[in-house]
Every structure is written in structure tokens, then in C-alpha cells.
Design a binder for these strands. Sequence first.
RNA 1: GCCCCAUUGGCGGAACUGGUAGACGCGCUCGACUCAAAAUCGAGUUCCGAAAGGAGUGCUGGUUCGAUUCCGGCAUGGGGCACCA
Length: 876
Amino acid sequence: MATERYNPRDAEQRWQQEWEKNNVYKTDNDDPREKYYVLEMFPYPSGRIHMGHVRNYAMGDVVARFKRARGYNVLHPMGWDAFGMPAENAAMERGVHPAAWTYQNIAAMKAQLKVMGLSLDWSREFATCDVEYYQRQQHLFLDFLEKGLVYRKQSKVNWDPVDHTVLANEQVIDGRGWRSGALVEQRELTQWFFRITDFSQDLLDSLDTLDQWPEKVRLMQRNWIGRSEGLTVRWEIAEGSQKTAEREITVYTTRPDTLFGASFLAIAADHPLARELSAGNETSAAFCDECRRAGTSLAALETAEKKGIDTGVRVKHPLDASWELPVYIANFVLMDYGTGAIFGCPSGDQRDLDFARKYDLPVVPVVMPKDGDAATFTVENEAYIGDGVMINSRFLDGLSTEEAFERVAATLEKTLIGNQPQAERKVNFRLRDWGISRQRYWGCPIPVIHCEDCGIVPVPKKDLPVKLPDDVTFDKPGNPLDRHPTWRHVACPHCGKDARRETDTMDTFVDSSWYFARFTAPWEDNPTDPKAANHWLPVDQYIGGIEHAILHLLYSRFFTRAMKAAGHVALDEPFKGLFTQGMVVHETYSRGEGAQREWITPAEIRIDEIDGKRRAVHIETEEPITIGSIEKMSKSKKNVVDPDDIIGSYGADTARFFVLSDSPPDRDVIWSEAGVEGSHRFVQRTWRLISEAAPALRQAEAKPAKSGNALEISQAAHRTLKAVGADYEKLAFNKAVARLYELVNALAAPLTEVAGGKADAATVSAAKDAVVILINMFAPMMPHLAEECWREIGGEGLIAKGAWPSFDADLVAENEITLPVQINGKKRADLTIARDADQTAVQSAVLALEAVQAVLNGQNPKKIIVVPQRIVNVVV
RNA sequence: GCCCCAUUGGCGGAACUGGUAGACGCGCUCGACUCAAAAUCGAGUUCCGAAAGGAGUGCUGGUUCGAUUCCGGCAUGGGGCACCA
């Protein structure tokens, strides 16, 4: 009777070869069945996959296999997000060419993914650094340029004055360059931009149609796009104040109702007026420089202490010309948003209030809560930002905030200064155009040529691709394309004169903004084959980390619209269903500080617990290591766990099953191996139960029992089948796992009986039916074990090509239900009663219960609440 | 700083649309098998309490017959903030 333990090392390889031999996962674009496109966000080829990848791809694979079993023609491709900074860093640190480094990493990671047994169509694989891919991206860029979706403008970068290099925000640590340690400056460069703001309103409105996206992602995008309705208001500069060439300052405000609470104007350091004043004033120039040094990131800007300086310029209040207000240059005002100038109403905005207190500016409350008292309402250290009733606001007093908004808007629209209205209604978006220029080598070259006579000349499509030169060096700082001896020299396609290539490459977000479309016909000479793209798109189920909730997804949505404008696809929204899986997070470990800080992988350290305190030491050197915060697994922080150990000891199925168990897939998990033994036990237990019963099962016909002893077996199997199918549809893998455990627990005794030859024919048939269902249910999660079990019980063909079984409705229905009985909201008893019993029957049955009688003590209950099919609550 | 999310036993978590809190797994305890161990099987396992019973879903206040679930405030942790991908 004893069978051998399941050996994943042997079985997994065998079945992977079998699938490959049969081309099971190769997708035919002309297959007539209904399509289903499932896609996981493709990985950056950092070198090794980590548990976060395993989790992501295991989920996608369950969906792919499940949908295949449900009869769909499934597209499930894989590729590589292969351009980006780490390859250049490796080149600088180790002298490897970025291409060599990247392709080696891809080979290593592909091997790891292969071991996982994913049902991917590898024939469609590509890397974004393949010339064949980025050539089509250049084609798209030229099309967008032609459609007016691309332009150039001045924009700021982090400049390292020692390394002569543009730094990413990530590379700026406490205002200094990560390698040189030099204070980072901001430099203005002319850079390329995509006009994503052309689509602001549409990108916002269409969020409502994405009903298969998580609400939180839609909300984040809505806030990011940041539509606001407000007023631009012109403030005249008062005579007799600081001299300036300007006559007025235009301010954007969403709160014109609070105009009578204004106590200052604040302008950005890059505002034309600030620049003008700085030219002749050292203090103001120094302050503006300081603001610019703060870094390009919004987070850095907003966490910095709020500061400003008085320019000496005074402006006239738009509703009272005799009222003059000071104009400050302030570090919290952004030139990119609105008009680069605001009016500060300290009582209605916390930031303005802090600023006013700091510089001793008046604070006049102008809005109070509806039920407030105007005589006593004051604002001290907390601004009142809500809606309410206007006070201290002259002709607005007593109005609601909305009414006041309208009155001010109507008044100022009619007031003319120099024949122009003083104010105009304006819809404003927080969303900015997408800067795609990168001063780096390892990216897609922007296919443009600069000619002294002809200006900017697009590279003709017939001259594509603009290939990256291979012979580059990274021993010197700066962009290798810039200092390449020949690459940038080229004849102008227009006039033939000597000209130079654009040396900026594209942001890697561009690469990932259309790869999903390329997968539909990766062999096509044009960027897409519109027929294939329109057949497969939108992606039915897109799965990836929540960290991409805004940028990647928004850029892809824009790109799809731009591609539509250029005729490459016929749709707006690329992703119909989105699932944001939680991240696999882990503690970080490091030694050294600041720019010297060096990250250490978990594999290199040991955790000791001394007096209840956790301490980390380096295994090799025994030196103490700093335990840092818990963060998403990333190559840069090295807090990654390689799945090879787990797959090596337990097999891919156990690893897949384990990462799908327990945690809800959209929740972050702190990585821990505790519990992997349980998953492995389940694999072995399932194999043992099935293989021991297999000789008997092979002979039997699968037939659910409708009555008798075996009924329970069939009910358990069919109820689980219904529930697991629903779980897979919702991507609730952890729940499916729990149900499978329950079913196997329930089948253990009958299968042992069958194996021992002690079961009657009806039981053997019901057991066979249950086992067939069981194997099909765990097949999407543990495909190798499923094939092995399937063959063992004499199944025909491959489970990977099999159809999802259907459940028997009679077996799923419940005739009797057990109602919990509460007394005053606390459960005191159970009542088992026919499912269709009516309210009165339930009530009298409840009153007859001993527990209820005891509490009632002969009296009548105050109230009995019967929630059909759910619960009874007796109120005493 | 701003936007979004999470918080339930020793641990991961379950609880459908407001209706039995703790399914399932891990760990632990006890038992069976064994010369012994591993593997396996069985029983128990929120906390307090001998028990009866009581308390309990980060904290706090509210709505409700009834709140892990809805609303207000707070705390802690995580993600994003436009050049990490």
C-alpha cells in the first residue's frame, strides 16, 4: 500500500517538458474561442527574482490556468523592463557593459521563472532594450510628434557639480549627490515633454468607467490629476512700493470666498517677478537660490520649513483698492501649479496660518462653522478649512461659502482693469506634462536631429532605428552619448548639412507604457498590428504592485490614447481589470551612514535576540549591522529573499501554494518562511491520499452520490468546487487555499477507506468524482502535482488542457440551516430549522429554547428580530 | 507636508451586502504508533476565571436590537509624491 513520497524535483521537470513538447501555453491569435488577456507587470531584470515576483507571477498564473480551463483563449506573455539606471551603475562599478549586464540578468531570471512552471507564452518574449522593441517606440515618438503631442521646454534637473551628472531624486541624499557628496544644484535644461495634460479631463472622467479597478487606485489617480474649479485674480501692484517692471500679479485661487481674509501674496522663487527682483537684490537672490537647492521632489519641498521673504512690493486688494498687502517670495509656492502665485488667507489654510504667525501677518477669520457664533469665533493656531458661513467679509457676511464664491466671481468678472476682467473662472489641473528626457545612455534614444539651419528635424522613419552605440565608456561622469566620438554627428535629413543627434534618451516609463500592446503581435514591423491589438486589448486582468497605482498606470492610459490618435490601437483604456497585489516587504539591513551607507542582504546577516532585543550581525565578519525599516523588496535596498532555496528544498508547487496561502493577495506581507512546511505537508498528504486510493479509483466511474453514506463526500466536493471557482474569479487565492485544506481533511477518511478496499461501490465512485474535482481545483496553483495525480488515477490527457468541472446544484443546496440565537446581541444558543421555515415558525421555535426560557423567566420579550437565513436576536 | 491603504489570538489570517469573532494554516501542549527519532494519526489551543461567568477585533467617541464591518477624532505601520522601477 505504501507509495513513494512525491518527488517534485523529478515530477516538475518532467511535466514542464511535457507542456513544452505539446505547446500547451503558446497562444494563437486566430483561435476562435473568446479571448482573455492576463498580464502581470513585467519585471526589471535586476539579476535574481525575489519572493515579490514569485507572488505576482503565481497569482497571474492561477488566473491564466483557471481561465484556460474555463474555455478561454488565454494570452499570458512575459517580457523585461530592461532599460534604466541600475545597468549604468553596474557599468560604473564593475566595468560591465549595460547590455551585457542586462542580458545576463534576463537569462538568469528567465531560468528562475521557468523553474516555477508558469503557463507563459515565451514565444512572445522581448526586452525593452531590444532594438526591435525600441525601434517601434521611436516610431511611436515620431507619430506623437507629428500629432502635436510632444514638445520641448525648459525644466529643472538635479545637477551634481562634481560628477557633472544629472541625478535622479533617489540619488540625492539630504541635498547631496550620492557618490560625490557635493551639494546638489538645480539646472534648467531644455527637455522633451509629452502632452499628457491634453487628456486631463478625459483621464479623469474615464476613471468612472474602470469599474474593475480598485476604488483606492481610482481615487489616487483622481487626486493626482487634481481638477479644481477656481478663479484667476489679477492684483494690481500699488504705486510707491518696491520698483518693478510688472504691473500686476495674477493669482489662482479655489477659495475666492475667503478674499477678505487675505493678508499676503506669495510667489514662487521662479516667478518672473521674483527673478526680476533677484537681479538687483542679493538677499532675495540668495533666498531664491536656497529655494532652488531644496531639490526637485515635491516631498522634499513640502516637508521643508515654510519660509519666505518680503519683496517690498505691495498689491491692491481686488475688492478694496485702499487695502494694500505685502508680496512674499515663499518656498512652498510652485511655479508649475496654477500661476505660480497665491494669496494667503491664514484663517482658512493651515500652511498660510503657520506662515502668518511666523512673519506676524494679520489673521482674520472669514469662515466659521454653520452653528458658530460670529462674535466669539476666532482662529488661533488651527485654521478652519471647512465650509460654513461668511463673517468679517463686508458684503459677503452671512452667505454660505458657495454663495460667497459665486458673488466674488460675478463681481470681479465684471470689474475691468485695462479693458480686461479682473478675474476669470478657471478649471485647473494638478497634473503636469510628462517630462521624458533623460541625460543617460541606457534608454531609448529620442529620434531627433538638431540642425543649425533647419532646427529640430525628426529622424525619417526609414532611418529607424536610431541604435545605441555599443562602444561606450563609463569611466567618466556624464552622458556617454554626449561624449561619444562619432555617434552624435549626423547629416541633417533635410538639408544634408552637418548636424547632431539628440543625446537625451527616454524615461523608462515610456517603455512600460505600451509593452502590453506589443505583446499582441511582437513580430509586427509597425509598433502594433492594429487587428491583433484591438482583438486582445484591453488587458482583461492586469496584476501588479500597488506602488504603480499612479505613475505607470496613468502614463499607460495616456499612451493608449496617444496611440489611438496615431492609429495604432482603437481604444482608450488599456486595462479593463486591475488587481493591485500587496508588496512583499522585508526589514532592511545596512552598515555605515549617509553617502557611505551600504545595504546588506538578509542572507548575509544573522539575527540574535539578546534580552528581548533583536540585533543583527554580519555572518562572515561578526560586525554589528543596523536593522532598518521594513520596505518593499528592492534591489537597491538589497532586502530581497531569493526563492531558489524554497523551490530547491520543496519544489515549485509548494512555493507557489505557499505564497498564495494565508495572506489576502492585495495585502502587503512581511516575508517569513514560517508556514512553508505546512504547504509542503499539504502537497505530500494530498499525494499520499490520492496515490494510495488510485488503484481503486482507476477502475471506478466518477459519479457523485445523491444519497446514502457517500452523500457527504459529494456535498463537500461540490460545495468546495462552487466556492473555489468564485474565489478564483475574485482572485481570493488565500480563501481557495483554506477551502482546499478543508476538503482534503474531509476526504482523508473516505480515501483511506477506499485505499484499504473497505468502501462500497457508491463511495468509490463518489470519491473518484471528488478527487477529479479536487485535482482540477488545485491545478491552477500546483500544476505539476495536479498532472502527477491526474495520471495516477488514470486520467486522460493533460490537466493543463482540461476543462473546469461543473458543480451539481442539488449537492450544493442546503435544506436545513442552523441559526444563531442572540439574547441582547450576544449569542446564547443555536436553532436548527428547515431552510424555508417562515418567521412565525422561527419565532416560536426560538421562544421554546431552553436558554431563552431561562432568561425570559416567564415574561414576554420586548422584541424579536428575525433576519431570514441569518440570525435571531431576542431583546429582553 | 499632502494623497491612498492597513491595524483581529503566540504568528499568517477568516467572517458574503451591519447578523455566531477567531474558519484554514503555522506554532505550541498532550496522546497514539516506534527500542528511539522522523514521518503520520488523534485531541486541545483568544484572554481572565477552578467553575458559573465575564472581557475581547490598534485607541477613543458615536449611529444601531446588533459594529471587525458604517461615521468622527487619534495613534502606529506601509505605499506614492512626477529622474528607483
